[in-house]
Design a protein around this nucleic acid. Structure first.
Length: 498
RNA sequence: GCGCCUCUAGCUCAAUUGGUCAGAGCGUCGGACUCUUAAUCCGCAGGUUCUGGGUUCGAGUCCCAGGGGGCGUACCA
């Protein structure tokens, strides 16, 4: 049992902290270091040199010492920075503080200045003509070869994971570039990026249980948003004809390989357009991202081929489900028959459900998981789509689509319901369910209805799960591999930092 | 929520059916070494085997409870 320091910092426990902690304590850290070159640039510029060459080019590099090979009066090191690794070459004759250099610990941050050269074996190196300790590691770094495998440690101490797990670093770099590419893609199409509130007085825009919080000064109950949807549509009312937000949203639900309580959604809205427009936008965007980030739309996911190229298959929910269950089903199928089919397929059905909900459940439990190749599932029941506009030719349905890839929902979009009267009816219907105990049902949002009263033009909206898209492109199986600091059970506070 | 699995040194992993088994590699510390590539060689230190009970002559190993984590399932994206 260790005793935490008053400030919560690491206890000075000899078994746990680095043996050289005294050295670290006396360390006088510089405020800056003059870095002019990164590891990858050295390989780019000097990658083709013959062995034993001195370039006359002096560079300043910095990073962590990841590997060290001391050999008497020579020492080799591997320096890693955000771009990659480069070898360091130090000599007793030419490197000031050679002994101290050899005593560096794996994981120490150093700055090095020296001439770029190649060794007799031909490896491009920076000769350590001068060096500075920038920050010592006070804790031992993980095994240089195996790294960390314990998932818990990887997630809780991501700062270590990023150094010792190259795939982790690559995945998060890909995520960053993906978000950046999405912005460019939408901006090129005249979409305006906006930021809407995270605190919502009324949770809305999706069916989910929210996190609750409270504002002291206002003495107001607030909710963390479950979707930015209703605010973005208010902005279309306000005259922003094409808007998007990359929004962190929060849902108070279970955690799994595919669910983190906070996650990131892209939502975008376009006036004067319907759901066909956004199906086209989606497949174009996803194919574009695959090209940009992976170099191709022919990917592999979990060892299985996956082609993201446009166009994607389009099929109605009713047709796909009919195909699966082997008989024609739709929202016009008699309730009894739908209920029987649910039972036959092991789908639990609630007595209060109408045909739309029954059909949706049947589809989700029997069909969705098998849709590996990108598929737009279209025309959902009105009963389960309180914000979507009625289908122009199919009564009881709405103009809604979900993009399913590798059996999982990647996106959801629809022609927006613009009629305040119908929207009010849908809200009231939802509120009734809420009163009946469904704590994921919506509540009436009067201000949103007021906004609709001012007129929402024909509009289409789309939401894409950013985390899941990263999983797809990075070929990883868990959302925790694409979220830097996934939600975990808090560590006990009576142990200090360990 | 529920089910299954898992937890041994800083890290990665070993310990026949419960019987000197608490070990190795890396790292750390000390020493050798002028071209290494997970450098190599010699030596030292390092563990309340997640925690607490129990069974037993004897528990890392079996049982119970608790804790952390993983996977599946449910809700959902």
């Amino acid at each position: 049992m260790t005793t935490p320091e008053p400030d919560g910092s690491a206890p000075e426990d000899a078994a746990r902290v680095h043996p050289d902690v005294a050295r670290a304590g006396a360390f006088d850290q510089p405020y800056t270091y003059d870095v002019d070159t990164r590891a990858a640039q050295i390989h780019d510029r000097f990658g083709d040199l013959e062995p034993g060459v001195e370039t006359g080019e002096v560079v300043g590099v910095a990073g962590r010492l990841m590997l060290r090979r001391v050999q008497g009066k020579l020492a080799f090191g591997t320096l890693q920075d955000s771009s990659g690794q480069v070898q360091l070459f130090a000599t007793a004759a030419g490197t000031p503080g050679f002994g101290e250099f050899c005593d560096l610990n794996l994981g120490d941050w150093i700055g090095v200045r020296g001439e770029v050269m190649t060794t007799r074996r031909g490896e491009v190196s920076v000769r350590v003509d001068d060096w500075t300790l920038l920050a010592p590691t006070r804790r031992p770094f993980p095994d240089k070869w195996h790294g960390i495998t314990d998932p818990d440690t990887r997630f809780r101490q991501r700062y270590v994971d990023l150094w010792v797990t190259p795939e982790a670093r690559r995945t998060f770099e890909l995520r960053s570039r993906m978000v950046s590419a999405i912005r460019r893609f939408l901006e090129d199409r005249d979409y305006l990026e906006v930021e809407t509130p995270v605190f919502h007085p009324i949770p809305g825009g999706a069916l989910a249980r929210p996190f609750e919080t409270h504002h002291q000064a206002l003495d107001a109950q607030l909710y963390l948003r479950i979707a930015p949807e209703l605010y973005l549509k208010r902005l279309v009312v306000g005259g922003f004809e094409r808007v998007f937000e990359i929004a962190r949203v929060f849902r108070n639900e279970g955690i799994s390989t595919r669910h983190n309580p906070e996650f990131t959604m892209l939502e975008c809205y376009e006036a004067y357009a319907d759901y066909h427009t956004h199906m086209a936008l989606t497949e174009e965007l996803v194919a574009h991202l695959a090209e940009q980030l992976c170099g191709t739309t022919s990917l592999s996911h979990g060892g299985r081929p996956l082609d993201l190229s446009a166009p994607w298959r389009r099929a109605t929910l009713a047709d796909l489900t009919s195909e699966r269950v082997g008989e024609e089903v739709s929202i016009h199928t008699p309730l009894d028959r739908l209920r029987t089919l649910c039972v036959d397929h092991g789908v639990p059905a609630d007595d209060s459900w109408g045909p739309g909900k029954l059909l949706l459940e049947l589809y989700e439990k029997t069909t969705e998981g098998d849709l590996w190749d990108p598929t737009f599932v279209t025309d959902y029941p009105e009963e389960v789509s309180p914000l979507s506009r009625r289908h122009r030719s199919e009564p009881g349905l709405v103009e809604r689509f979900e993009g399913i890839v590798v059996g999982r929902e990647l996106c959801n979009g629809f022609s927006e319901l613009t009629d305040p009267t119908v929207q009010r009816e849908r809200f009231v219907e939802q509120a009734g369910r809420r009163d009946a105990g469904d704590d994921e049902a919506m509540v009436v949002d009067r201000d949103y209805l007021r906004a609709l009263d001012y007129g929402l033009p024909p509009t289409v909206g789309l939401g894409i799960g950013i985390d899941r898209l990263v999983m797809l492109l990075a070929d990883v199986g868990s959302i925790r591999d694409v979220v830097l600091f996934p939600t975990l059970r808090p560590e006990p506070t009576d142990h200090g930092a360990d």
